[in-house]
Design a protein around this nucleic acid. Structure first.
Length: 836
RNA sequence: GCGAGAGUGGUGAAAUUGGCAGACACGCUAGACUUAGGAUCUAGUGCCUUACGGCGUAAGGGUUCAAGUCCCUUCUCUCGCACCA
């Protein structure tokens, strides 16, 4: 066993912090606003498999940052909790009959102890779990506010139905046509759903992104998801019919080029306008389209299919009669579910027109519409009153024309769709509404919240689309809060996103039973200064949370338009796996290393190559943090995760690599066993100390933890070479090590005679004078190639540098007898002599 | 297909404004030492070359006294979106 007693040290200090409530955050009004920091981690779903090495990465990063800020004198709020409603616990309940609360709370227990084992400086007094009635009371309360503002509505729209989970899924939860959770192929089913009108906030969600200190990549993803576009709605009349057909277009300037129209198969007008001759063909096509899953409909994009409806519309600008087709390349869920097709200037329409021999008309110059659609801008032709106009003017002119004739108007469209908010599930927040036959939908009075999740006999969904709650008659049957007559409760529950939409607010005031959080606490801490989590939540969670926050802002309940000022996404921690020649992957335990250092598959002796892959159970390359902590200690685990590389990029785990930081900490420990003296330290070490303090301070503030650690290693390697141990070189180092390896640092700090925790000790400053070098190495180059290196005074001027280079004997060898064209000197760096 | 990002030793990676490519760590090699440990310590370690020196940041080209860094072309990988009218 090692000399470094991390087991003992880590246990001791974790107990100390817990007993002394070292990291409790208080709303101290004497701390000015700019010295307060709210640093937030994305809270975990407490799954049955416990923590994996990915969780501690972000948590370690924020912990280091928080510990650093505390030592810099900041008042820091750093809470942790659990996103504890969710499908796995319920699916487990369905198969075993165990109440999801029981499994969930066991899992929370396990997660909490694992997280505590890493020595994170959370204020545990603020812990929240979304499944507790004290918490979901306020989730329900916020839902009621949305409902009262008209932001929640019922709709019978077709939804994505997972036949395995027997539940509806939001569009966003369907990945490649399969259920996000269980992978089952999703089907369409029509069901009554609660929907939240997030689209009403689309513009603000888009605009307010500007102010946020988020990566451009994440902002771009959100922008893309919201998908705002500007254009016009145009109404076409249908020949021999009273109907009008409304379409959305971003290119009203191409209206003269619209030679046909297309309806999505689900469009309500399809049945009304289809002619008798075409009815059979249309019905056959509709049936085919219905059977296609979304996956097929999007994947079969290469070959567009459709059918003529037999009906014609009138192009309002030129009175021409144009055919109306039905095709599934038009989506019912975007725009009006119908388009005007301009084959000259839209590639999809072009392909379709070619296939069905529909005329292609050029109305914007710039391409060759015989070869392909021209989607760019240019001068309008064949366009009546638009002829000769540039695209931008043509668009304006056409919109004005449409508006003046009452045939259309300027319009904005979004890809973003409203949020399907109900789940036919047991393990979620009950939606606090009552259906009354005379009063309609009535909210449960706020003073009666929480609406408790009742106990049930069976967690199995009814299979009809209703949640297990529908089977409990004495819960479902209630009286109307309004008129007192018999009424029925809403039996849908909320999705898992609900609880995570506002948890960062509950941490501010977690035991408040009067409101979700007091104004004082919100004012004191908000907004979140730094939010760290996985990129997988880049769109959904962050968009939903921002939406709820804006609603609360409109209600006057929060003081900021945006909840999270700075967002950092940590990269994924991957692992090595082994790959056969045919690129298939081999599980970890079926590979062994040969004597020559190559890898072979055990039973076939086939050579395999190590490659980086996601950790997965099937590849058996999952790293368990408990084992790492047991063998190397939490401080090593923390430091290694930060040493691997930049926080934001994904990087492969290597337990061998971890031994590097373990050895470093062991070396620090062995240093501490030397006698500490009070003498004057050697100048070169003092200078190195100050450079180290500077680099660690700057890098920690920028979350560049890997380079900060490297610098501490450099320092310790030098310090180790010196005999003895100078207190003035040692104590500041312990303080800068503290955020990274807090257990060891506390122990060493105590060894130096301190009696309290270093958690609030003053972060050491550095002396800029000592960080400066009097002498630097200067490179002499001839034609850009390094020919000599010399030490020179840092303030040598360019002239002196040039002269010294020209006089240098190695340089003379290269320049003698040649013409010097030019000489460049860069102070402290180099001299370059250009010769011919 | 579109969009974003990335390609640096055997490996993870460093490298203000263009200014010594490879810090730090793993691994490897040699030696020392021993309380034989998951040790530890010392030295070495980009490639070619006995040396002088040459070549090296995915490939090719360009700008510059000087390019990992700036510009152009190509390739590969990762992520996101996927008929958004």
């Amino acid at each position: 066993m090692s000399k470094y007693p991390f087991h003992q040290i880590e246990k001791k200090w974790q107990q100390h912090w817990e007993e002394h409530k070292t990291f409790r955050a208080k709303e101290d009004p004497s701390v000015p606003r700019e010295r307060r920091a709210y640093v937030l981690d994305m809270f975990p779903y407490p799954s049955g498999s416990g923590l994996h090495v990915g969780h501690p990465e972000g948590y370690t990063a924020t912990d280091i940052y928080c510990r650093y800020l505390r030592m810099k004198g900041y008042n820091v709020l750093h809470p942790m909790g659990f996103d504890s409603f969710g499908l796995p616990a319920e699916n487990y309940a369905i198969t075993t009959g165990t109440h999801p609360r029981i499994t969930t709370e066991q899992n929370i227990e396990k997660f909490r102890s694992q997280i505590k084992g890493l020595g994170f400086s959370y204020d545990w007094d603020r812990e929240v779990s979304t499944h507790t009635p004290e918490y979901y009371r306020w989730t329900q309360w916020i839902f009621l506010q949305l409902f009262k503002r008209g932001l929640a509505y019922e709709s019978d729209t077709p939804i994505n139905w997972c036949p395995d989970c027997l539940t509806g899924l939001a569009n966003e939860e369907v990945i490649d046509g399969a259920c996000d959770r269980c992978g089952t192929q999703v089907r369409r089913k029509t069901i009554r759903q609660w929907i939240l009108k997030i689209t009403e906030y689309a513009d603000r969600l888009l605009e307010d992104l500007e102010k946020l200190d988020w990566s451009d990549a994440i902002k771009a993803m959100q922008r893309n998801w919201i998908g705002r576009s500007e254009g016009a709605n145009v109404r076409f009349s249908v020949e021999r019919s009273e109907e009008t057909l409304s379409v959305y277009t971003t290119r009203p300037d191409t209206l003269f080029g619209a030679t046909y129209m297309v309806l999505a198969p689900e469009h309500p007008l399809v049945k009304k306008i289809t002619s008798d001759e075409q009815r059979e063909a249309v019905e056959a096509y509709l049936e085919k389209a219905e059977k296609k899953s979304d996956l097929e409909r999007t994947d079969l994009a290469k070959e567009k299919t459709g059918v003529f409806s037999g009906a014609y519309a009138v192009n309002p600008v030129n009175g021409k009669s144009i055919p109306i087709w039905i095709a599934d390349y038009v989506l019912i869920s975007y725009g009006s579910g119908a388009i005007m097709a301009v084959p000259g200037h839209d590639q999809r329409d072009w392909e379709y027109a070619r296939k069905y021999h529909i005329p292609v008309v050029e109305v914007v110059q710039g391409g060759d519409v015989e070869q392909e659609a021209y989607e760019g801008t240019g001068i309008n032709v064949n366009s009546g009153f638009l002829d000769g106009l540039q695209t931008e003017e043509a668009i304006e002119s056409m919109i004005n024309w449409l508006e003046s004739k009452g045939l259309g108007e300027r319009a904005v469209n979004y890809k973003l769709r409203d949020w399907v908010f109900s789940r036919q599930r047991y393990w979620g927040e009950p939606i606090p509404l009552v259906h009354c036959s005379s009063c309609g939908i009535v909210p449960v009075p706020e003073e009666n919240l929480p609406l408790m999740l009742p106990e049930v006999d069976s967690y199995t969904p009814s299979g009809t689309g209703e949640s297990p709650l529908a089977k409990i008659d004495d819960w479902v049957n209630t009286s109307c809060p309004n008129c007192g007559e018999a009424a029925k409760r809403e039996t849908n529950t909320m999705p898992q996103w609900a609880g995570s939409c506002w948890y960062y607010l509950r941490y501010l005031d977690p035991r408040n039973d009067q409101e979700f959080a007091s104004q004082e606490c919100i004012d004191y801490w908000m907004p979140v200064n730094l939010y760290v989590g996985g990129a997988e939540h880049a769109v959904l969670h962050l968009l939903y949370a921002r939406f709820w926050h804006k609603v609360l802002y409109d209600l006057g309940k929060v003081n900021t338009k945006e909840p999270f000022m700075r967002l950092v996404n940590q990269g994924m921690i991957t692992s090595y796996a082994y790959q056969r020649r045919d690129k298939s992957l081999v599980p970890h335990d079926e590979v062994e290393e040969t004597e020559s250092g190559a890898y072979v598959e055990k039973h076939t002796r086939e050579p395999v190559e190590p490659v980086v892959a996601k950790m997965s159970k099937s590849l058996k390359n999952v790293i368990n943090p408990d084992e790492i902590i047991e063998s190397y200690g939490a401080d090593s685990m923390r430091m290694y995760e930060m040493f691997m590389g930049p926080l934001q990029v994904s990087k492969p785990w290597s337990t061998k690599g971890l031994t590097g930081v373990y050895r470093f900490l062991d070396r620090v420990w062995r240093l501490s066993q030397r006698e500490v003296t009070d003498g004057q330290p050697p100048q070169h070490l003092l200078k190195l100390l100050h450079k180290t303090i500077k680099k660690v301070s700057v890098d920690t503030g920028n979350l560049d933890f890997n380079t900060a650690i490297a610098q501490m290693m450099v320092y310790i390697n030098e310090l180790f070479k010196q005999e003895g141990l100078c207190r003035s070189l040692w104590e500041p180092f312990i303080l800068i090590l503290a955020p990274y390896a807090p257990h060891l640092a506390e122990e060493l700090y105590q060894q130096l005679g301190h009696h309290s925790s270093l958690a609030y000790a003053e972060w050491p400053g550095w002396d800029e004078q000592l960080c400066r070098e009097e002498e630097t190495e200067v490179v002499f180059q001839v034609n850009g190639k390094v020919r000599a290196k010399v030490m020179m005074s840092a303030d040598a001027d360019e002239q002196a540098m040039k002269q010294s280079a020209l006089d240098h004997e190695k340089i003379r060898k290269w320049i003698d007898g040649r013409d010097i064209v030019k000489t460049i000197a860069v102070p402290k760096k180099l001299v370059n002599i250009v010769v011919k």
